[in-house]
C-alpha cells in the first residue's frame, strides 16, 4: 500500500510502478492457473472448479447475447477475462501483504480507456458514418452533451472501481489504528473484510456490465 521510490522503475522516459505490475502479474498468474486447473480435465458432467467457470462463462455469455446480439460472441472472451481479472484483483488486496492492482487509476483508467476506444473503433468499423451521425442526433447542438457523455464514460468507469477498492483497503489499514487492541478489531475487521469480498464481486460485475453495455452501443446490429 505505501508507495516508495524503490517501487518506481524508469524506462523509455516513462515511470512504471513496480508494485502494481508485480501484483497484476500475480493476479494474472492466479487467473490463468485457475482457468487451466478448471479446464484441465473437462468432463461432460461438470464438477468443482469447472462448474464455477462454466457458471461465469454461461452467465456472462447470456448477458452478452442479450445486450450485444450476434456480434457479441466475438467480445465474450474479452468481457469474461475482464470480469475474472477484476474479481481476483479486487480480492487480491484482502490478502495480507498484497494490494489490489485495481487500487490504482493506472489499471482502472487503462481498462476503461481500452473499453471506450474499443467502442468508438468498433462503432466506426461496423456502422461507419451512421456512428458519427448519431452524435448529432436528434439535432446538432446535442453533440456537446454526447461528447461529455463519452468523456464521462472512462472517468466514471475507472473512478467507481478505484474509489471502492481504495476505500476498502484503506479502511483495512486504518481499522487497527482506530481501535485500542487487536481483540477489539476482530469483529469490525472480519465484517469489513466480508463486505470487501462482496464489494469486490459487485464492482467487478458492474465494471463488466457497463463495459458490455457501452460496447453494445458500437457493436449491436440495429437490424436484429
Amino acid at each position: 500500500m505505501p508507495e516508495s521510490a524503490a517501487h518506481e522503475l524508469m524506462l523509455f522516459g516513462l515511470s512504471f510502478n513496480l508494485e502494481t505490475l508485480e501484483m497484476t502479474w500475480m493476479v494474472m498468474a492466479v487467473v490463468v492457473i485457475l482457468s487451466i486447473v478448471a479446464t484441465r480435465n473437462l468432463k461432460l458432467v461438470p464438477a468443482g472448479l469447472q462448474n464455477i467457470f462454466e457458471m461465469v462463462i454461461t452467465g456472462l455469455n447470456s448477458q452478452i447475447n442479450a445486450n450485444m446480439g450476434k456480434r457479441g460472441a466475438l467480445f465474450a472472451p474479452f468481457l469474461i477475462s475482464l470480469f475474472l481479472f477484476l474479481l481476483i484483483s479486487n480480492w487480491w488486496g484482502l490478502i495480507p501483504g498484497m494490494s489490489s492492482p485495481t487500487n490504482t487509476l493506472n489499471t482502472n483508467l487503462g481498462l476503461a480507456l481500452l473499453v471506450v476506444v474499443m467502442l468508438h473503433v468498433l462503432g466506426l468499423y461496423y456502422k461507419g458514418t451512421k456512428y458519427i451521425k448519431h452524435f448529432f442526433e436528434p439535432f446538432a447542438p446535442f453533440v456537446i452533451i454526447k461528447l461529455i457523455e463519452e468523456i464521462a464514460k472512462p472517468i466514471t468507469l475507472s473512478f467507481r472501481l478505484f474509489g471502492n477498492i481504495v476505500a476498502g483497503e484503506l479502511l483495512i489499514h486504518i481499522l487497527p489504528k482506530l481501535l485500542p487492541n487487536i481483540f477489539a478489531e476482530i469483529i469490525p475487521g472480519v465484517v469489513w473484510l466480508a463486505f470487501c469480498v462482496f464489494v469486490g464481486v459487485v464492482q467487478a460485475f458492474v465494471f463488466t456490465m457497463l463495459s458490455m453495455s457501452y460496447l453494445a452501443d458500437g457493436v449491436s446490429d440495429e437490424n436484429e
Partner: peptide, 19 residues
Amino acid sequence: MINIDGTLLAQLINFIVLV
C-alpha cells in the same frame, strides 16, 4: 496511487495478454 504514468500502458498490455 492516483498518479497516472507508464504503468497504464503496461497494464493495458498485461490485460491484453491475459485475454
